[in-house]
Simulated assay, not measured.
Amino acid sequence: MSQSPEIGSRTRTRAIMEKYGIRTKKSFGQNFLTDLNVLKNIVEAARITKNDNVIEIGPGIGALTEQLAQAAGQVVALEIDADLIPVLKEVLAPYDNVTVLNQDVLKANLPELIQQQFTDPTRPIKVVANLPYYITSPILMGLLASPVDWDAICVMMQKEVAQRLTAKPGTKQYGALTLAIEYQMDARIAFDVSRRVFVPAPNVDSAIVVLTPRREKLAMQPFDKQKLFGFIRGCFAHRRKSLWNNLQGVVGKDPATKAQLEKVLAQLELPKQVRPERLDLTQFIELANALHAVGLL
C-alpha cells in the first residue's frame, strides 16, 4: 500500500519539495523530518494500533502521516498551510484511512471535529504531532483545556521545553508549564531527536514527549482550576524572587493583606524566603485553597 521510497526518506522529501515548488515557511515554523527510523519510533512511542483514531497536527508533506496511516485505524491531519493541502492529498492518496483538513488546531472545535470526521468516534483518540516551536505551549494548553478525553498525546518539541514538561521540583526547568501538565497528565520523554534530521535544520535539538492521563488521583482538588493556574503563573512571575515577594504581586501589598498572607504561610509551614520552584503541585493547591478561604484569591 505504501509508496517506495517512503515520504519520510530524505530523497523522497527533496523530490516532493522540488516537484511542487515547496519552500518551508518560517511563519508556520516548518521543518520537515527526514529520518524514517525517527518517524517509526514516534508511532511506536505513541503505541498506535488499528483500534486508534489519531489527530495529527501539522502534517507538512505527510512523512509522519504516512507512518500513522499504516499503523492506525483512522487519521485526521490538520494543516494550517493551505498551499500544502493539494500536496498532502496527492502524496497520501494511497491511504483511504486519512483525512486532510485545512485547519488551525488552535481554532478547531475538537469534540465536534472528532464526531464529524471519525467513522467510530468512540475509539481511543490520540494526538501525534511535530509541533512548531513557537506555539508549542498554546497548542498543549489548548489540547488539555478541551473536554476530549485523550488516550495519549505524543508530540515532538524543542528539547528545552520537553525538559520543562518533565521537570522535578527544585530544578531550574520546573515551572508553571510543568505544573499545568502534571495536573492532568503523566509526562515522559521517549527519546531525543537531533536537529540534523530536519530540512531545513533548526537551531536546536528536539525531543519526543508522551503525555498520558494521570494514573494517580490528586491528593486534593483546587477551589477553581483556572484560577489555580493563574495563581501559579503569578508565583513564577519572577523566578529569582522568593515565593513571598511573588505572592505580593498576586494578592497585594497593603499591610492587612501582608499580615493575612504571612499567617497563611505560617499555617502551611512555608518559609517566606522559599522559592516557588521548591513547591510541588499539592502544595500549590493547598496554598491557593488557603488564600481563597481567607478572601485573598
Results as ranks from 00 to 15, higher is better:
50 K>V: 10
66 E>L: 13
154 C>F: 00
49 T>F: 01
175 G>P: 03
181 I>P: 06
82 A>L: 00
9 S>R: 15
135 I>Y: 02
204 V>I: 05
164 R>Q: 11
20 Y>Q: 12
193 V>F: 05
117 Q>F: 04
58 G>F: 08
290 A>Y: 06
227 K>A: 13
210 V>M: 03
179 L>V: 06
36 L>F: 07
24 T>F: 01
59 P>E: 08
91 V>N: 05
11 T>S: 13
10 R>S: 05
256 A>R: 13
270 L>P: 10
94 P>V: 06
249 G>K: 03
164 R>K: 09
205 D>H: 09
292 H>L: 04
9 S>D: 13
107 K>A: 07
40 K>W: 01
264 V>L: 15
29 G>P: 11
103 Q>V: 13
121 P>G: 00
260 Q>R: 01
189 I>F: 01
289 N>W: 09
235 C>I: 11
254 D>S: 05
15 A>L: 10
257 T>S: 05
82 A>G: 09
6 E>R: 14
142 G>R: 04
180 A>G: 09
171 T>R: 10
66 E>Y: 12
16 I>L: 12
124 P>F: 01
19 K>M: 03
173 Q>F: 11
126 K>A: 02
44 E>H: 14
79 E>D: 11
185 M>Q: 15
208 I>T: 03
139 I>A: 00
211 L>H: 02
140 L>I: 15
130 N>Y: 05
283 Q>R: 15
222 P>L: 08
237 A>E: 13
66 E>P: 09
239 R>T: 00
118 F>T: 10
177 L>I: 05
48 I>A: 08
84 L>H: 12
96 D>S: 02
282 T>K: 14
70 Q>K: 15
205 D>C: 08
98 V>E: 07
34 T>Y: 03
83 D>I: 07
36 L>K: 04
261 L>P: 07
143 L>C: 04
290 A>K: 03
112 E>N: 01
269 E>M: 11
166 T>C: 13
152 A>V: 12
273 Q>V: 03
224 D>M: 09
210 V>T: 13
207 A>H: 05
130 N>T: 09
224 D>L: 00
4 S>T: 14
274 V>T: 15
32 F>H: 02
132 P>G: 01
3 Q>A: 14
